[in-house]
Design a protein around this nucleic acid. Structure first.
Length: 843
DNA sequence: TAATTCGCTAGACCGA
DNA sequence: TCGGTCTAGCGAA
């Protein structure tokens, strides 16, 4: 590291009497922290003025009079002559031979508050404004092409670091881009922190004392190996746990009281660069802050009390000079994007389902009583608290590389990227790319316009109705990144839509729009770069893996690119998007339908029977054809496809089953396949749904497995009979019978009653805290008439109290009969002895 | 503060 | 008791 190389930890802005200024928080090679102030960056927005040249000049003059007439020189106004928007205007003006012109201007402000004020005043003057709603720090990151990571800072030599004097000083900050971009991760002090609190009669943030706190810190070992593999799992963790008023334990640092615990935690957290929590946005950090107040002390991170920022419906805790990473937000994002699939997002589930490590859950009651309980109980609580922190830091060690990559792609802090939605990521990327190209971004739509867009959905994908029944020898083909590759190949972008050139009309799609062939559009240009980069990285990753190195950073990079690529189409059709474009989104799916239809036709012509297809896939029945034939077919198709599009082989399957719907016809989006190595792939069926009980799901899986492995159903039917018998005998365990449903709205907002709303209602009466987002686990009991009446949260149900009729007829049978029906079984066969028992012949 | 559309199924409710 | 309509949830891609 040269003397001017740093790790950029954080950027914030502060406003003093005269200016809003950007503060950079940096760390050097020795781990010493600095801050630096950039005085040469100011808040700004753009405006558009319309009229004749002279009129525009007058408008500018009167603007200067009207805006901030009480505050002299609080803004500067510049014409943005080199901007794309103005160039385009000029072309139009020449074409139309008009003296009416449109001109864009950039207005700088001294303070963020001035910009906010100007927004209102420009509204009143009916002057169109742009990029007025981009937060100042985000603006800085975008304009400077920054991200959190290693940077070089160049500044006037006469200048010193802290303290800063007020003279002019130019600061140039640049992100260092190299092959080991994530190396800085290893320079960071990272620790996860978690608290346990006393249980009171009522719950509120900070109401009851903190009784225990743990901090798990990364200990760096094997730096050489780490640098080679970028595999952070080789990191070791060192955990300290604080408590008071307990028995002695070698695993605990005893302090005198809560106040001292808070001060110890404060001291440790201040040594970190990255403070990691699990739901610290809404729990741990606000809690500590509140308790510090109650103990009449400060809880300072870098000389500042912690601040909560509104972030949608909940909060985000931002720390000055450091990054607060809430690992819960990371898990939520991974769940939303389908990277992981877990039902409950608590640390126990994450530990088990994501890392394969069992973690025991303690209830708030147990936490409370174990604190001053027996020796064994105390040890259990210590272990629980310890594992909370350690699971939390593990999430970061495994997944932060992904968000570092997203931060770099979108020019955001880790703080922001770990809390972003996919649409926000796309928008940040677009803002960065248009800013580079000197293009002014479009504004967000108003609520009325948004409603209008939502009420006008576009036509989506084509799904071919499958041939129901059991099939043998299936080849599955699918298009690689279908939507992004269509956007690239057909140059789909808001600016290329319906260009004036006649020759471009041949690039038209079935919904009547066409896209320019002469000039590459913004979306295709960005996506093509990302797609190529992803393919390159994926190749490099595979190459390394072959040599026994699992490079987490490379994997994270290609994954980050995949997330962004896959969200681009959704973004174009997203009503709140700045770059929303109905025609572009619609053309993308229209092209997709054309490609899938033509592939189906070509496959048929080639001699395959097409079994099924959904959006980008084709299921071929091979009949007497060979794998070589499939490969030849792929080659033929790929020769005819545009360069960036590719039809790939997903795999060969020895058997597969598609089922008939209740009301007739074959069910789409529901099937099961088995490959040559007996690996099962179950899609859409109850087995993959969380709102079915485990017994029904596992029974269904077993049936599918037996049917697909053997190609005949006798054993499967017998298995179902056995399960039904067990249910009737009343000995099935509770956890086999719980059904999970998410409460998606407030109880009073439901029009229809359902089992889950009724179970929730009853639980609330018993004093349970249930609201939007609660995951409800309920059982259908014997008590009541309708199913809803019988529904009761699992924790209130005694063992054996379940409605066996319900579980047989509404869970087990529907789950298995749709499969066995394809093999000529009826419900009766399964309930009353049936085919194999001989009873049928008897009667 | 929220990416899209397509599709299946359950359970309540209503009227015949 | 049946079928039709509606609300609701969740999964596929």
């Amino acid at each position: 590291m040269k003397s001017n190389e740093f790790v950029l930890l954080d950027v914030k802005y502060e406003t003093n009497q005269d200016f809003s200024s950007i503060y950079l928080y940096l760390k050097n090679e020795e781990g010493k922290s600095f801050w630096y102030k950039d005085d040469e960056f100011h808040p700004y927005l753009y405006i558009k003025l319309v009229g004749e040249e002279k009129e525009i000049q007058e408008k500018i003059y009167s603007l200067k009079e009207k805006i901030f007439s009480n505050e002299e020189e609080s803004f500067k106004i510049h014409e943005v002559i080199d901007f794309e928007n103005n160039k385009l205007q000029k072309e139009d003006q020449i074409k139309n031979n008009s003296s009416q012109i449109e001109k864009y201007f950039k207005i700088y402000f001294k303070k963020v508050s001035h910009l906010m004020q100007a927004r209102k005043e420009l509204n009143e003057l009916n002057i169109e404004k742009f990029e007025y709603d981009i937060p100042f720090v985000k603006r800085y990151f975008i304009d400077k092409n920054l991200a959190v990571g290693k940077v070089t800072v160049t500044f006037d030599e006469k200048k010193r670091f802290v303290p800063i004097d007020e003279t002019y000083n130019e600061l140039i900050i640049k992100l260092i881009e190299n092959n080991k971009e994530n190396e800085f991760f290893l320079d960071l002090e990272i620790g996860a922190f978690d608290i346990e609190t006393k249980l009171g009669p009522k719950f509120d943030i900070g109401l009851e004392p903190i009784i225990m706190a743990s901090i798990a810190r990364n200990v760096k070992q094997n730096m050489v190996e780490l640098n080679q593999t970028n595999n952070f799992q080789t990191l070791h963790v060192n955990t300290t746990i604080y408590s008071y008023k307990t028995r002695k334990s070698p695993n605990l640092i005893s302090v005198d009281n809560e106040l001292e615990l808070i001060k110890e935690v404060e001291k440790e957290l201040n040594q970190l660069d990255l403070i990691v929590t699990y739901n610290g946005d809404n729990f741990d950090l606000p809690y500590v802050k509140k308790r510090a107040e109650k103990n009449k002390t400060d809880f300072f991170i870098e000389t500042q009390t912690i601040r909560s920022k509104r972030h949608g419906l909940d909060n985000a805790v931002e720390l000055k000079g450091k990054q607060h990473i809430d690992a819960y937000q990371i898990i939520k994002f991974l769940e939303r994007t389908g990277a992981i699939n877990i039902t409950k997002l608590d640390l126990e589930n994450v530990s088990e389902k994501v890392f394969g490590i069992y973690k025991k859950k303690l209830s708030p009651k147990e936490i409370d009583s174990f604190w001053q309980g027996t020796k064994a109980e105390l040890e259990e609580l210590i272990d629980y608290n310890k594992k909370d922190s350690e699971t939390t830091i593990r999430i970061v060690n495994d997944f932060l590389p992904l968000f570092i990559e997203i931060s770099k792609l979108t020019s955001q802090t880790m703080q922001d990227s770990t809390r972003s939605s996919t649409s926000q990521m796309i928008e940040d990327l677009l803002l960065k790319e248009t800013s580079k190209r000197k293009i002014i971004a479009p504004n967000k739509a108003h609520e009325g316009e948004i409603r209008e867009r939502i009420n006008n959905p576009i036509k989506g994908a084509f799904v071919k109705e499958p041939i129901p029944g059991l099939h043998e020898n299936i080849a599955v083909l699918d298009f690689a990144s279908l939507y992004p590759s269509i956007i690239i190949s057909h140059n789909i972008s808001p600016e290329t839509l319906n260009c004036g050139h006649d020759e471009c009309k041949k690039n038209s799609c079935s919904d009547g729009t066409h896209f320019c062939l002469k000039k590459k559009g913004l979306f295709p240009e960005i996506l093509e770069k990302l797609l190529k980069e992803r393919l390159r990285i994926k190749k490099e990753y595979k190459e390394k893996k072959k040599n026994g190195v699992d490079d987490k950073v490379l994997f994270a990079k290609q994954w980050a690119l995949k997330i962004i690529l896959n969200s681009a189409y959704g973004y174009l059709g997203y009503a709140r998007a700045r770059w929303y474009n109905r025609d572009c989104a619609s053309a993308t799916t229209a092209f997709a339908r054309e490609y899938i239809h033509s592939t189906i036709k070509k496959a048929t012509d080639f001699g395959f029977d097409v079994l099924y297809g959904d959006t980008d896939s084709n299921f071929l029945l091979m009949n007497d054809k060979t794998k070589k034939d499939v490969e030849d077919f792929l080659k033929q198709i790929n020769n005819e496809l545009p360069e960036t599009m590719e039809l790939e082989l997903d795999g060969y399957y020895k058997r597969g089953i598609f089922v008939t719907k209740k009301e007739g016809g074959a069910a789409k989006k529901r099937y099961a396949l088995i490959d040559e190595k007996n690996n099962l792939k179950i899609v859409g069926f109850e087995y993959v749904r969380r709102d079915w009980c485990r017994l029904a799901k596992e029974t269904q899986k077993k049936v599918i497995e037996l049917v697909l492995e053997k190609g005949e159903p006798t054993e499967a039917a017998n298995y179902v009979r056995k399960i039904i018998k067990e249910l009737k005998e009343g000995q099935v365990k509770k956890e086999e019978l719980t059904i999970m449903t998410l409460l998606k709205r407030k109880l009073e907002d439901y029009d229809a009653t359902g089992p889950h709303t009724e179970a929730a209602r009853k639980a609330i009466e018993k004093g349970k805290d249930i609201g939007i987002g609660s995951m409800l686990s309920f059982i259908i009991t014997k008590n009541g008439k309708t199913i809803s009446e019988k529904a009761e949260l699992e924790e209130f149900v005694n063992v054996g109290n379940y409605d066996s009729d319900y579980y047989i007829h509404n869970q087990i049978l529907p789950a298995v009969i749709k499969i066995l029906k394809e093999l000529d079984y009826t419900e009766d066969d399964l309930i009353n002895g049936g085919k194999q028992s001989g009873l049928g012949q008897w009667f």
